[in-house]
Write a protein that binds this DNA or RNA. Structure first.
Ligand SMILES: [Zn+2]
Length: 355
DNA sequence: CATGCCGGGGA
DNA sequence: TCCCCGGCATG
């Protein structure tokens, strides 16, 4: 049978199943030429076809050198990767493949994480921006529409990194709003979000398990709770840096002036957001020099092996950068699926438009 | 909801 | 090895 008709016609909607009808190709005459669909004998299957035309979409890569900004009065450029390395404390040998090594899910189907309603983050936004907190959404931690994580009992939260602000929200949009309104002093009406906010918050992951374990004090289970209900704060901030960064004296609040509050650190820590590649939008302000909170070596004495280091784990730590650049699928569309690169057809990582 | 892709499965 | 899909993560 002709392989052509194997597929059916259904598809439609979400995933069109398959449809190997060649639109462009006329019903293949007896023997198609080389670059047909799949020839056993590999010839150089370089795709040199017209596809190239479309491929021209690439984008404008390169250069964005914001570092030479200008507002920076003092050469504060330094401490760059230091921070980076600090946060990336992970090591090469840190095969996080062990993951579930310890406790948790021996074999029981354990019910949905559930139960304990323990959750509350000690965020205390006091200190600076007293002027007005737009209140906006605050902390609502459990409303996340996250049915199940890859693991169980793992939650991703977004923490504001401003000097004295420790707000933690459960949604990125929430934290962005917070930063925009509270710190950047932007109008909330226009939720125009340029990449700026991204640099002021970071994602942290909260392990409910260890949490409840370590400090299961929330519940009156153990009477001996005199322990300090610490907050698992990945916040390794120290006031040390504040000295340098005090360019503006304070931060936050600058309704009239735009985000002049931005601190100055010439390095852009890429906690996770990997913004690179084709940047079509011209950033009004040069990004790159901002970011005030700095993480120093976590000297926290963690006797437990349960580090809460923000790094390895499914969603939170190593986020999937999710490359940019349109891939075959988007470029050609489902209709011309035959033009996709093999990888794309197999639903694998695209090879033609690798970014 | 669409896209991208890993991991796994069938021939 | 080729081919494909379930399902999930992400924006
Ligand atoms: Zn591709």
């Amino acid at each position: 049978m002709t392989p052509e008709f194997k597929n059916s016609t259904a598809l439609s909607q979400a995933d069109e199943k398959k449809q190997s009808e060649r639109e462009t190709l006329p019903v293949l005459p007896g023997d198609q030429e080389d670059l047909g669909t799949g020839k056993p004998s590999g010839h150089a299957d370089k795709e040199v076809m017209a596809a190239t035309v479309l491929t021209s979409l690439s984008t404008s890569p390169l250069v964005l050198y914001p570092s030479s900004a200008s507002t920076v009065p003092e050469p504060f450029s330094k401490t760059c990767k230091e921070v980076l390395s600090a946060s990336y404390s992970s090591s090469t040998s840190g095969n996080w493949s062990w993951d579930a090594s310890d406790q948790s899910v021996p074999s029981t189907p354990s019910p949905p994480l559930s139960n304990d309603a323990n959750k509350n983050f000690p965020l205390s936004s006091q200190g600076d921006d007293v002027s007005e907190d737009v209140t906006e959404t605050t902390h609502f931690m459990f409303e996340d529409p996250i049915p199940r994580k890859r693991k169980n009992s793992m939650k991703v939260m977004f923490k504001c990194l401003w000097k004295n602000c420790e707000k933690v929200l459960s949604t990125s949009s929430g934290i962005q709003r917070h930063i925009r309104t509270v710190h950047l002093g932007r109008n909330s009406d226009s939720d125009y979000s340029d990449g700026e906010e991204d640099f002021y918050y970071s994602e942290i992951e909260v392990n409910m398990d260890s949490l409840s374990e370590g400090l299961s004090n929330l519940t009156p289970t153990s009477p001996t709770t005199s322990g300090p209900p610490p907050v698992f704060p990945p916040t390794l901030n120290d006031a040390l840096h504040s000295e340098h960064i005090s360019v503006n004296g304070q931060q936050n609040q600058g309704p009239s002036l735009l985000s002049q509050s931005a601190p100055s650190t010439l390095c852009h820590i890429r906690t996770d957001h990997a913004y690179q590649g084709p940047v079509s939008h011209v950033r009004t302000v040069s990004i790159g020099e901002k970011r005030q909170p700095a993480a120093s070596t976590h000297t926290t004495v963690n006797k437990n092996h349960t580090l809460i280091t923000p790094a390895p784990k499914s969603t939170p730590g190593s986020r999937k950068p999710r490359g940019e650049a349109k891939k075959c699928r988007k470029v050609y569309g489902m209709e011309k699926r035959d033009m996709w690169c093999t990888a794309c057809r197999w639903k694998k990582a695209c090879q033609r438009f690798t970014d």
